[in-house]
Amino acid sequence: MFLTLLDLVGSFAFALSGGTRAVERRLDPFGIVFLAFVASTSGGIVRDLLIGTVPPMAIATWHYAAIACLAGVACSLAYRPIARLAAPVAVFDAIGLGFYAVVGTRKALDAGLSPPIAALLGMMSAIGGGIGRDILTAQTPMVLRKEIYAVAALAGASVVAIGDALGLPDTLTAPIGALAATTLRLVAMKYDWNLPQPQPRRPDEGIDQDPHER
């Protein structure tokens, strides 16, 4: 029940990020709800398929579709109050990132995966919704930029994986992991923390110059 609650909260946060992006792109009401659904369920669907949960929970129950519809309507009717938040898409995305990272890790552990692999799957389920949302709105997914995004999800997922190895309860590790992932993502956004980015080599580098031209 506790994990289900975290999963639904994370889904709603991702759905708000998708709905907000759809309103920014001036999509119609169907497009708003559809993008909210994609953002809120893509990561969970990938997670469930990889651990053998068929059909995935996102399409096996009505709850996730209802959450997407609710978030889409909220974004359509209350976009201006939501937009007053600093970078609303990124804020909602960071919240969903934290919740999905811990839920995905816990479900992977329950499926019998080792803690390191479970943490990786938790990270994958956390970044899936953002990837789907960004691709459908013709943007480079956040995970492919130099921003700290997947690393934040992996940090939160690792808290749950390590806690499970130590025998700690989910009621302790899951909130800490979700808070760690969300906080790291938000702080990285605020202070513009980025992963090192390789510098492309200039065409003239490595070419021996004529001694008379030096």
Rank of each mutant, 00 (worst) to 15 (best):
I148M: 08
V143Y: 09
E205D: 15
G130V: 15
A118C: 01
F37L: 15
V23T: 11
G52E: 06
A58M: 11
V9A: 14
P175N: 12
L184Y: 00
R84T: 08
D192E: 02
M57W: 03
P203R: 12
F30K: 07
L144W: 09
V9Y: 06
D204G: 06
A15Q: 09
E205A: 15
A118K: 02
G130A: 13
V143S: 11
R145G: 13
A119E: 01
A15D: 04
G206Y: 10
D28Q: 10
D7Q: 08
I131M: 15
D28I: 13
V151E: 12
L16W: 04
L113Q: 03
T105P: 01
D48Q: 02
R202E: 14
W193K: 11
L136W: 02
L136P: 02
V54G: 01
A152S: 13
V38D: 07
A65H: 09
A60R: 12
R25K: 14
G112D: 08
I207D: 06
F34P: 04
A68P: 05
Q199L: 13
T61M: 03
A108T: 03
A138W: 01
G128P: 00
T41Q: 13
V151N: 05
L168N: 02
Q197K: 13
S11N: 08
P169V: 11
S42Q: 10
F14H: 10
L70P: 00
E147N: 11
M189G: 05
E205K: 00
V33E: 06
S125R: 03
S76M: 15
M124W: 01
A66G: 15
T4K: 07
L179D: 02
L186F: 06
A180P: 03
G163H: 04
C75T: 13
R80M: 08
I67R: 07
D134A: 13
I67C: 07
V54T: 09
A108N: 01
E147Q: 12
R106N: 07
